[in-house]
Design a protein around this nucleic acid. Structure first.
Length: 271
DNA sequence: GGGATTGTTTAAAT
DNA sequence: GATTTAAACAATCC
């Protein structure tokens, strides 16, 4: 489940390894995973840089256009050599001049790619509506975006138009770190506590990037390697395990349509 | 073979 | 109109 730290890790690896390379061939093996653009215009273009916005992986090309990937649950974008056999669920393949190959694979096929001109990217409603990057502003500014809203805090953290790039892992981990119950109404959380939540979110995102992201099952970085941050989880996926704060078993609840693992004793419910 | 899985979109409700 | 919630959807695994 690639979220901000996982996509950031992939982007850094690809940028390091593929920037400046010319794309020789572009093959769309599964046409249905293409959301926009004509992939036939890619061959001959040079990769100017690989970046991330929210959970989108963005490969910039020298004609100004951008190849965007959303990995959803099980998508991977990684580098292989052109003489290696393709994986079973490869949907798009880009061979580079140095005999490296960028592969987009996704067994579930929930992920997608799109090729956008700069104007098309800005006109893409999903892209245009994305909220701020959590690591490019202060905790206080982030908390201002949450303050006063009636919705449950868990739902707002997952809402990509409020903050960009947060998924279930980093929402649950930051709520536990700040001792805020996921079902709390944002408007009822004191300002200082909301600031702390955003500071914890930033701290955890930075630590997760430094650890190369979290591998639950499918995620791999640009070189096919697993992340390490799953070893630092306090609550995510640990229902029944002792709470790191009080030792009582962690519980799960369905909040905003998502499984939320938390400690009902340590995490205060503001309603 | 049905339920669980996720992020996003769409629809419905408030 | 804005905000919030729920349902639908993609496809596969166990």
């Amino acid at each position: 489940m690639p979220e901000l730290p996982e996509v950031e890790t992939i982007a850094r690896g690809l940028d390091h390894q593929a920037r400046g390379q010319r794309i020789e061939t572009a093959r769309l093996l599964t046409p249905s995973i293409r959301r926009a653009g004509d992939v036939d215009t890619v061959p001959g273009r040079v990769i100017t840089g690989v970046t991330r916005r929210a959970k989108l992986l963005l490969i910039g090309l020298d004609n100004g256009s951008v190849l965007a990937f959303h990995l959803k649950m099980t998508g991977r974008v990684w580098l292989a050599r052109t003489d290696e056999p393709l994986p079973l669920h490869a949907h798009a393949v880009f061979d580079l001049a140095n005999s490296d190959r960028i592969i987009f694979e996704d067994p579930r096929r929930f992920g997608y790619l799109g090729l956008f001109s700069p104007r098309e990217l800005d006109g893409w409603s999903f892209y245009a509506a994305l909220g701020p990057e959590p690591l490019e502003t202060t905790p206080h500014v982030l908390s201002q975006r949450l303050a006063g809203r009636q919705a449950r805090i868990k739902s707002l953290l997952l809402n990509q138009t409020v903050l960009a790039g947060i998924g279930n892992i980093y929402a649950d981990e930051s709520l536990f770190a700040a001792r805020v119950h996921p079902a709390s109404r944002a408007a009822r959380i004191p300002a200082a506590r909301l600031d702390r939540l955003c500071a914890e979110l930033q701290r955890i995102l930075r630590a997760a990037i430094a650890a190369g992201g979290s591998t639950i099952s499918d995620y791999r970085d640009a070189y096919g390697k697993s992340g390490l941050f799953q070893n630092h989880f306090q609550v995510y996926g640990k229902r029944g395990a002792p709470c790191p704060g009080c030792g009582q078993p962690l519980v799960t609840a369905r909040i905003a349509g998502r499984t939320s693992t938390h400690c009902p004793l340590c995490q205060r419910l503001y309603v």
